[in-house]
Nucleic acid binder design. Sequence first.
DNA 1: ACCTGAACACCGTTCAAGT
DNA 2: ACCTGAACACCGTTCAAGT
Lengths: 222, 222
Amino acid sequence: MPKGITREKVVEAALELLDDKGIEGVTVRALAERLDVRAPALYWHLRNKQELLDEMSTTVLRRIADELPPPGSDWREDLAAYARVLRAEYLRHRDGARTFSGARVSDPELVVRVKEPLYQSWTKAGLTLQEADDALDVVVAFVVGFVIEEQERLQSADADPTRYSLAERDAGLGEHAPLTKDAGHLRDSSEERFERHLGIVLDGLAARHVRRDPPPRPRRTR
Amino acid sequence: MPKGITREKVVEAALELLDDKGIEGVTVRALAERLDVRAPALYWHLRNKQELLDEMSTTVLRRIADELPPPGSDWREDLAAYARVLRAEYLRHRDGARTFSGARVSDPELVVRVKEPLYQSWTKAGLTLQEADDALDVVVAFVVGFVIEEQERLQSADADPTRYSLAERDAGLGEHAPLTKDAGHLRDSSEERFERHLGIVLDGLAARHVRRDPPPRPRRTR
DNA sequence: ACCTGAACACCGTTCAAGT
DNA sequence: ACCTGAACACCGTTCAAGT
């Protein structure tokens, strides 16, 4: 491996380390070893560990921005696409949701690159800017919460397969919790639940919009 | 201070330490000092630090369960109450949302205590068990995501008041982002946004329910 | 049963010194 | 400009030994 360490390569290596060892394993020393330098070398390229974490989050957000399709004719579809891309990128990395959510994004331009076209398109389609802003925030909050829970479940199932097994769960639950028990059994796959729950959130946005603010009928010029 | 350290007192002290110093400050050594013992003493009462964190989460969830009003006649109100209590308890502790969300709850009986009465009440009111389960999950996901973002913003504003100031933000944003800029200005208080966004989510649940499964008209016996 | 002292293998970070 | 060696003030955890 050639030795020219750059800021970008450090961040990239940190993301690989995250996938291999989880967030607890992302230490300055382990990262240095992976890059074949001594730990203090990293401080030439980054101010401190927090800056490293911020850069990791920014890199992931940049990928999200790149994968996002351009806005179409339906704000509902734009939001669904955003939600799916966000979830996919979080799931792609071990501890992704916890690590990247609520992160400080070092590049404000990036936020604009994601938001501005959506706001543009949606306000043109009849949403108020408030509605557009709310829509994005509600969907992001939902996705973050969903994936944190989902990933915790997935990862503990990996570590300890009995932990989320239905049989274990039922045994621990006792007799006076029939509905909680039944609810556990009707849980479908993560994928289906995500799509259904996302649909619920989008329905809520649609309900508000339709109730408050029917879009103006297009006028024909003749 | 009397010296009888118990598991409960350790967890309580850990929550105080969390509020004082944040999650980074919750170390075994600092906790021991606060309890006036040496660090290894804590390992008599807890298997390891993870167990401490699990117990902290469980304690908070127990408080949530205690504060929850009994289910009423309107599932929408039950959910709103749950969402508000959850948010309030997370906000009550520094780094609360990140620390307690997606946590391993050591006491399964506690989950039942929260869920079973709600499932009972809602299915009696005409929801399917699937709808009831989805409703709880969607609302919890939304609250977790909302408060993670909210708390990150609140706490960085405390640490560095320029960070989220509108003037700073506008300056960094450039000319080609008018809508993103305007959206920043129409942001109202956390409280209002939370209530409005919660309303959106609840509308979504109502929309699904009404569309799929109108509740049976009550029949009068005479 | 409950706690301490000493130790182990780690952390993030600084800084003078090297090239 | 970029990196190292040595050091500092920390971590979580174990374990023999004390009471």
